[in-house]
Design a protein around this nucleic acid. Structure first.
Lengths: 302, 302
DNA sequence: AAACGGAACTTTATGATTAAAAACAATTTG
DNA sequence: CAAATTGTTTTTAATCATAAAGTTCCGTTT
């Protein structure tokens, strides 16, 4: 009924390592120095030191911290569970995975307790997670408590695609006007090369397109230095990415076509032809939306 | 240490009203009917009925629910505290108010415990609230717990304005292509009238412009039926609204100029002149951003 | 001046408790 | 006897309290 002490355990293990590196008789640096090195507060360091004293590895008096004996492997504290890194992103991935894989219908009430058990996270963590999704219209808080999954309805897909188009056409206009020495031109050159390479081996490697696609769109949007655009771009690519992952129908042909569209857009951009670039972008966004919609339909029928 | 019983209290008071409407001797509908009408579960209804029996207003045996006496005002249960409606929106308003009124500098660490005391809400409520603001880049979670207010920096204002421009120019393009019988034309006609009326009395009523401005922009954006646009529009108008509220310098002149810009845009739209409309919109958005930026500067110098 | 010792305070995770909802079974009524 | 209503039980979820971990700030020591 309190917060976990992974923080302490990690720090303690690093202390152990430090003592191991020093010969018995050596001295540890100051509490502040240790805290700074481990990226924790002094309190944690001191708790660790206290424990080292207790198990007889260290003698500690004021600022004298002398290693008494070499720590052994069994002195380390066990870090049970993954608990590493940023849980939020993994949770996001798992949640979207769940929603799409099991084809949860729109309007399903979400049971926070149940989900938190399934996903192995604390209920309030899930709560926070869900509320972070609210602005994107994926879930909704019900008036009398609880949550509803609004889900990937047709309307959602259409509106998402439209919004994406608005942002992306804006990005294209920015790129056309980008100075010659902007890094985007180098990036586009490289991406064009990768497209051509993939085109050669499309039958064998058409699966690799998804990643290339994401890189291409991310590069375009990165020209617009805007935190709101970037934020939405993240969500958009997440959702498109997940949908493509589950929609395997006709993938080779789709990807081959998309490669051509990308190449046409890159050509127009490099010629600084605003009209042609916009036209190419519109065309590509249109097919993209069509694909998303048909994948939705297939998914619902299947 | 348990959930509140506002739900029960509200339902009970509605039962009281119902009993009052019926003459003594009248019968109440079924539990299910009552539950459906009040929008609560049968459990709550039954608890209410039980209580009515206890205070002698009702005789209840099986499906016989007979009113014994007329309930009085003091029979009602007190609903202490605001607790009504959606707290979240009020909290939002108070939070933004606090941020702007006290000119909290960017990068300030937010103390959840402190704020939750100040605002009189439970810490976890505030936590959830803050996390709902994260996608908009207003606050940020610090790696070792706690929150940082990223605040209304210059960059934030610029990027917000840019994003607004992208959305609004898109809206303008939609309006130009809207069919003749679209409700926007009626709305624009009315809004134009109000602009002209306000222009006549600009010296006396220039304060009224803020609301008119919001209505104008909301009307434009409503033509783009898109949940993402709508969501962002909400945030944008919130922030612009709050800033204008505190920046009173030169307000009369500013508003008079904005009225002219609005009128020019409405004219261009009604003529279906896409180029002129875009030009007018760009001009207006530019001055809007300039105003926001200068208000920021004044605010920081003051 | 830098490092330490300690206390006060925050954040965070979990229990306890109760309200409310939902599920289920039994009963009545038309 | 089918549908509706009621009685009962089980789950779910909102709230607060609590306790541990962690941070920060203070004065003190070296």
């Amino acid at each position: 009924m309190a917060r976990t002490d992974v923080r302490f355990r990690r720090a303690y293990n690093r202390l152990i390592e430090l003592c191991g590196a020093l010969a018995p008789g050596g001295s540890l640096p100051s509490e502040n120095a240790l805290a700074a090195e481990f990226g924790v507060s002094r309190t944690v360091v001191r708790a660790g030191l206290k424990r080292l004293v207790k198990v007889g590895i260290l003698s500690w008096d004021g600022r004298e911290k002398t290693v008494l004996r070499c720590p052994e492997e069994r002195d380390r504290l066990a870090l049970d569970g993954a608990a590493s890194g940023d849980d939020m992103e993994e949770l996001e991935a798992r949640f979207l995975d769940w929603v799409l894989r099991f084809d949860v219908p729109a309007g399903t009430p979400l049971n926070v307790a149940q989900l938190s058990r399934d996903f192995g996270v604390a209920p309030h963590r899930l709560q926070e997670f869900l509320s972070s999704f609210t602005p994107f219209g994926l879930v909704e808080r019900r008036p009398h408590g609880g949550w509803t999954l609004l889900g990937f309805t047709r309307d959602f897909a259409v509106e998402l695609s439209e919004f994406r188009s608005v942002l992306e056409l804006n990005a294209v206009r920015h790129v056309v006007n980008a100075p010659v020495d902007h890094s985007i031109w180098r990036q586009l050159g490289q991406i064009r090369g990768e497209h051509l390479a993939l085109k050669e081996q499309i039958d064998a490697k058409f699966h690799d397109f998804s990643k290339l696609d994401e890189r291409f769109h991310t590069a375009l949007n990165s020209v617009v230095r805007n935190r709101f655009v970037a934020e939405f771009q993240k969500v958009i690519s997440l959702i498109f990415h997940y949908h493509y992952m589950w929609d395997k129908t006709d993938e080779r042909r789709r990807n081959a076509a998309a490669i051509e569209e990308h190449l046409a857009l890159i050509d127009a951009l490099e010629k600084r032809d605003a009209a042609a670039a916009e036209e190419a972008a519109r065309g590509h966004l249109r097919t993209s939306m069509t694909t998303l919609l048909s994948s939705l339909r297939d998914h619902q029928l299947g």
